[in-house]
């Protein structure tokens, strides 16, 4: 139901241009939970935000129920916003600390035209469902009085009160203590069971593996591989994916990482594969030709000249 076609995003910094996302395609079906992995700077967040029309791409379009989300206006836009939500990485920055928790959560409801009466009920039940009990105590508090984990729950509550069909979660647990991560991830699990589709962005592929059905791997703005969680974890094809998975610490003293990327200052070839400078398996063809996305097994796609 949300489909991105050849999205390219460019940022300008002074005279320099940075391609944050390059011709990325991604499809999220109803009720699907998708993971987007890659190291920092790979363009995951930018891609996630452009799905919600929060970043304007240079090229490409995002279709929501067949409508281009960058063109919709008025009532359509409002509905689009209600049905598609986002949760940010840093709850301290994504919540205006001048507002009480109640007002933070009610903002979306107010904008979407819910009456005051309706709001109170929805907000209290949302606070309960994200584990902030009793809701009366939290709703009057200021963000400064809450911990990071509690704030992230507030941020989630703010999104789910609108009863969205799709949620982008941008590194929702990376800023939180390990001890409270599982609680937050459980909320996503619950949402998934309710049929909400989601795009969970993370640099940590192991976290993703617990919650998502499919994983997309990004490198330097390119989607380099995607498939079901099982396919990606058990049979990573792209050298970069392999390196990512090798990097997951495994509690075995003699375990050796299999793939290591090359540390280098070599520039990325303008026409070739973005991984070329760091790839341990690089070939001449990789320098001049960018690999195309190919289906290696059903539902498992990779863009690499090795396949």
């Amino acid at each position: 139901m949300i489909e991105a076609e050849k999205i390219s995003v460019e940022f300008k910094s002074g005279d320099r241009k940075i391609n944050a996302v390059k011709e990325a395609n991604i499809t999220i079906g109803d009720g699907e939970s998708i993971g987007l992995a890659g190291e920092s700077g790979s363009g995951k967040t930018t891609l996630g935000k452009s799905l919600l029309a929060l970043v304007k791409p240079k090229e490409g379009k995002v279709l929501w129920n067949g409508k281009n989300v960058f063109k919709i206006k008025g009532k359509d836009l409002k509905n689009f916003r209600r049905e598609n939500q986002i949760i940010y990485q840093d709850p301290f920055d994504s919540i205006d600390i001048r507002m009480r928790i109640y007002d933070v959560i009610s903002e979306g409801l107010t904008v979407q035209g819910f009456s005051k009466q309706e709001q109170r009920e929805i907000i209290y039940s949302a606070l309960k469902s994200v584990g902030l009990n009793p809701p009366e105590a939290y709703s009057n508090a200021f963000p400064t009085q809450l911990s990071g984990g509690q704030l992230q729950r507030v941020a989630i509550a703010r999104s789910i009160v609108l009863n969205p069909k799709f949620i982008v979660a941008d590194e929702p647990v990376s800023m939180l203590d390990v001890s409270i991560r599982s609680g937050i991830l459980q909320i996503f699990q619950d949402m998934k069971e309710k049929g909400t589709s989601s795009l969970i962005i993370s640099h940590d592929i192991s976290t993703l593996a617990y919650v998502v059905d499919k994983i997309y791997i990004m490198y330097l703005g390119h989607v380099v591989e995607y498939g079901t969680t099982q396919q990606i974890i058990e049979k990573p094809l792209h050298p970069y994916t392999q390196a990512l998975i090798s990097a997951i610490p495994i509690p075995e003293p003699n375990h050796e990482t299999e793939i290591k990327l090359v540390e280098t200052n070599e520039p990325v070839p303008p026409k070739g594969c973005p991984l070329y400078p760091r790839c341990p398996f690089r070939k001449n063809v990789c320098l001049d030709n960018e690999p195309k996305m190919t289906e290696v097994e059903p539902g498992h796609y990779v863009s690499c000249h090795l396949y």
């Binding site: 929060l54 916003r81 940010y88 920055d93 994504s94 979306g108």
Partner: peptide, 11 residues
């Protein structure tokens, strides 16, 4: 981010 978050809520 909270400005973008508000936009995402439909403001």
């Amino acid at each position: 981010t909270f400005v973008e978050a508000s936009k995402a809520l439909g403001s």
